[in-house]
Design a protein around this nucleic acid. Structure first.
Length: 823
RNA sequence: GCCGGAGUGGCGGAAUUGGUAGACGCGCUGGACUCAAAAUCCAGUCUGGCUCACACCAGGUGCCGGUUCGAGUCCGGCCUUCGGUACCA
């Protein structure tokens, strides 16, 4: 009979739900295991293959741990605020709240049909006041500590989505992470979270977590710590001082000009009258360029001198001051000392504008002071042309010159980070309102915590106008100042949705908690998250923000750990014809097609069997029949032994030497599979785990009929339990068929392999001549060299191959090879 | 440019510390069952040579070189490809 997946899957899903099999007892923290997947964005596109690939295998891991006796907590929820719902509303007129709730209801049904062991009592969504109230609370705590602040700054603006974006949300080609539109720069007053205060700790903490190296290194690069020295250059005929940041103070004597970012406030002050016009027109010319064009490494560098001169603090030399597009206002001091001889960018610039190049380091191929360069020498070496520092190794020169500068108050050591503060305001409707009132008299006034939540009004004109939709809602905007009572305005912006996701894992523990952001008693016991699984695309966004907020909450006394996610795994990306699946490309594969035809166990199995989990791969449904056949054959196998457990009770261990051949073969394979599966599942190697199960099925199909009933029961029970994580519905059904009375997930059990069954009595030894395989011989396990040798030299093929040759050496590796080296 | 991952049959992919390359699955070929088909089951399937067949021989893990008795695995130099990043002083 064909496996009736549809009835059976709904039967067990109902059973699991009715019996609350997956309700986690959070008060039992012995062997607690918090397994989490990145929560789902409830778009109209519903569950796609990528979600399945994330959730299915992770649930297999969670179920495996559950059977191993862990108290597993595996929740699911909805990252429900965000742009797509609002864009959908603009297009269709359907309110974001309504479409989001509809989508959530649909997606919940889809999720339940996947058959994951989610604790549905812990479900949460971010778009409801009982959740986002705590975003506002969190904002206020950050505000109190000076970590939430407003400033006017050049920001990334997406013309299509009509909102600002964080640096992290702008892709490397300068386009919007969400919609792919080219991002432009705008000066706006925006809210920031001061993540930079935690830069050093965010960097150090990476050493303490078990995350993919790639992700850690991406975060390291993103944080971009750089240690160097700030050097003060006096300006000739002026009281102003230019402070530059350099990582190479050892090249200070090689400075031949100084560059300031064109937008730097000093530029106007230092431009001499005769250069005013040139400078103004240069600034105009780069204004029209986007940040990306301006900072493109391909583009030729441009710049103009501004007429004044800076004085090198170590040698008193006057060098011209330039403005150039390659100096960035947002990094360091916005001013650069240029050393063309030892910096690539300065070199190219100096060549182009005929500025002097002075060598101060010798080393490598660069051995003669008078030789001309065709490229900058950026390595270390011996210092020359550097006054009293001549002859010093430049590596030491870094310290010596820094010391000199600090002692003479000409500069100081400084650490810079590439990381910028997190821009969190968005000029959009569908998000958390910012709990600040702007009073003409008192300025920024935070809302009193007891007045939270500040609810997002339902009736809002959300067509994009470049202004926050909330601004047009008078009843929302107009408010009395809580401090002085005068007419004031609310902040019209909403928060970046990454604020929602930066602490949601705490909230799952009790999503209905009302007296605080989350239940801190539970949080202390259950966080950090033990295993977090989600896409690598969040490496420098969500995964960085969550670490920051976690540390902040810890500092408030709300968490007792330093990091939110102890272990992290990224599932690979499933592509279609080489391209990322996306609605706009029209290459999205709908999982329903397969779950309706084969059932969710088969689909889950197939996704896991495709290849290594972290690699992903290109979608193809070619092999899904293989997973289907595995399920069919398994079902048939169990149906051959109905209620066998009511007739016999296998003992935990059999003496393998007492079994006859087929029994021995089944018994051994069962125990080998337990061992293999244990290792593979534990390490997210689902493809090889399933291969092992297929091997076991092949073995049992072939030999189980010939075994005694107690061995049959022994094998089937183990096979069924191992099936539990990888095909849960099928496993429950199979176990019921053979007479188990209760769900294996209600009374979790996992079998240990019988060590004696894993020891083979004979092994194949490869016999090689000069490393080339000539034959294999079967011998008892652990045969010594002398006895192996005896057999080897009686072998016809070996005798033939050795004919006329001189034996130089023989190499023997026990149970593996016997290699004869000849001449 | 820089950082990281990946290159193995027709395809997805397996291979402990270097020790029998191609597990498992798909597909394909042949056979059984069937009036026939589907499904299922059995056998074969890295390439080339030779053979009725078994056997046997040679070659083979992106390319070139090296270390070693022995390299898919280690080392050096490339090529292709997929991610990330973009003048960060």
């Amino acid at each position: 009979m064909r496996y009736p997946f549809s009835e059976i899957e709904s039967k067990w899903q109902k059973y699991w739900e009715d019996n609350k099999i997956y309700r986690t007892n959070l008060s039992d923290t012995d062997k607690k295991l918090y397994t989490l997947v990145m929560f789902i964005y409830p778009s109209g596109a519903k569950l796609h293959c990528g979600h399945w690939y994330n959730y299915g295998p992770t649930d297999t891991w969670a179920r495996y741990k559950k059977l191993k006796g862990f108290n597993v907590f595996e929740p699911m929820g909805y990252d429900a605020f965000g742009l797509p719902a609002e864009n959908y509303a603009i297009k269709t007129g359907i309110h974001p709240f309504d479409s989001t709730i509809t989508n959530i209801n649909d997606i919940r049904e889809q999720l339940k049909k996947m058959g994951c062991m989610y604790d549905w009592d812990s479900e949460l969504m971010t778009c409801v006041p009982k959740y986002y109230k705590w975003n506002q609370w969190l904002f206020l705590q950050l505000y109190k500590k000076g970590l939430a602040y407003r400033k006017n700054a050049p920001v990334n603006w997406c013309p299509k989505d009509q909102t600002v974006l964080a640096n992290e949300q702008v892709q490397s080609d300068g386009t919007c992470e969400r919609c792919g539109t080219l991002v432009i720069q705008k000066n706006l007053t925006q809210w920031f979270f001061k993540i930079t205060d935690y830069a050093e700790e965010l960097l150090k903490g990476l050493n303490e977590i078990n995350w993919p190296d790639k992700t850690k290194s991406m975060q390291r690069n993103w944080i971009g710590k750089s240690t160097g020295t700030e050097v003060k250059f006096k300006v000739d005929n002026s009281d102003e001082t230019i402070t530059v940041f350099t990582t190479r103070p050892d090249t200070l004597f090689g400075v031949t000009y100084v560059v300031i970012a064109p937008e730097h406030p000093l530029v106007d002050k230092l431009t001499t009258p005769e250069f005013k016009e040139k400078v103004a027109s240069y600034k105009d010319s780069i204004k029209s360029l986007t940040e990306i064009e301006r900072t493109s490494t391909v583009k030729e560098k441009t710049g103009v001198p501004i007429g004044s001169y800076a004085i090198n603090p170590v040698n008193g030399e006057k060098v011209p001051i330039w403005i150039a597009d390659y100096a960035l206002l947002t990094y360091g001091t916005g001013c650069v000392m240029a050393v063309p001889a030892h910096d690539e960018r300065d070199f190219v610039f100096a060549k182009k504008f005929n500025l002097p190049i002075r060598k101060v380091i010798l080393g490598g191929d660069n051995t003669k002071p008078e030789d001309e360069f065709d490229a900058a020498y950026t390595e270390s070496g011996t210092m020359i042309n550097s006054g009293s520092f001549n002859g010093l190794a430049s590596n030491n020169g870094i310290d010596s010159i820094s010391d000199f500068l600090e002692q003479n108050n000409l500069g100081k050591r400084k650490t810079n980070f590439r990381l910028r503060d997190w821009l969190i305001s968005r000029q959009r409707y569908w998000g958390t309102p910012i709990p600040i009132i702007h009073c003409p008299k008192c300025g920024e006034v935070p809302i009193d915590e007891k007045d939270l939540p500040l609810e997002l009004p339902y009736d809002v004109e959300f067509n994009p106008s470049g202004e926050s939709p909330l601004a047009s809602n008078k009843t929302f905007m107009n408010v009395k100042c809580p401090k002085c009572g005068s007419e004031a305005k609310r902040d019209p912006d909403t928060m970046d949705t990454f604020v929602d996701s930066s602490w949601y894992y705490f909230r799952y523990l009790n999503p209905d908690f009302t007296s605080n952001i989350f239940d801190t008693d539970l949080a202390e016991k259950w966080t950090p998250v033990d295993m977090y699984v989600g896409g690598a695309e969040h490496a420098t966004m969500h995964l960085l923000y969550a670490r920051f907020i976690h540390k902040f909450l810890r500092d408030l006394g709300y968490a007792n750990s330093d990091e939110p996610f102890t272990n992290l795994i990224h599932q690979g990306t499933i592509t279609n014809q080489g391209a990322k699946m996306s609605k706009s490309k029209g290459n999205v594969v709908n999982p329903d097609k397969f779950t309706l035809e084969y059932g969710s166990d088969v689909f889950r199995l197939y996704l896991m069997f495709m290849g290594p989990y972290e690699l992903g791969g290109d979608w193809s449904d070619k092999g899904i029949t293989g997973s289907d056949r595995f399920v069919q054959r398994t079902y048939e196998l169990f149906n051959r032994f109905p209620k066998i457990l009511e007739r016999v009770s296998p003992i935990p261990k059999y003496e393998i030497t007492q079994l006859f051949e087929e029994e021995k073969s089944c018994y051994r394979k069962v125990n080998e599979t337990i061992k293999k599966l244990d290792e593979e599942l534990n390490n997210f190697r689902f493809n090889t785990a399933i291969a092992a199960m297929m091997e076991l099925l092949n073995e049992l199909t072939k030999n189980i009929e010939k075994c005694n009933a107690d061995i049959q029961a022994y094998a089937l029970v183990r096979f069924g339990v191992m099936l539990g994580p990888i095909a849960p519905h099928l496993a429950e059904e199979c176990m019921e068929i053979i007479g188990l009375k209760e769900s294996i997930f209600k009374n979790p059990v996992w079998f240990e392999p019988d060590a004696e069954a894993l020891i083979k009595d004979s092994v194949n030894i490869a016999v090689q001549i000069n490393g080339k395989l000539r034959t294999t011989i079967e011998l008892p396990l652990n045969s010594e060299q002398s006895s192996v040798k005896e057999v080897v030299f009686q072998d016809e093929k070996i005798i033939k191959n050795l004919d006329g040759k001189q034996i130089v050496k023989e190499i023997f590796v026990k149970n593996k090879i016997y290699n004869i080296v000849v001449r």
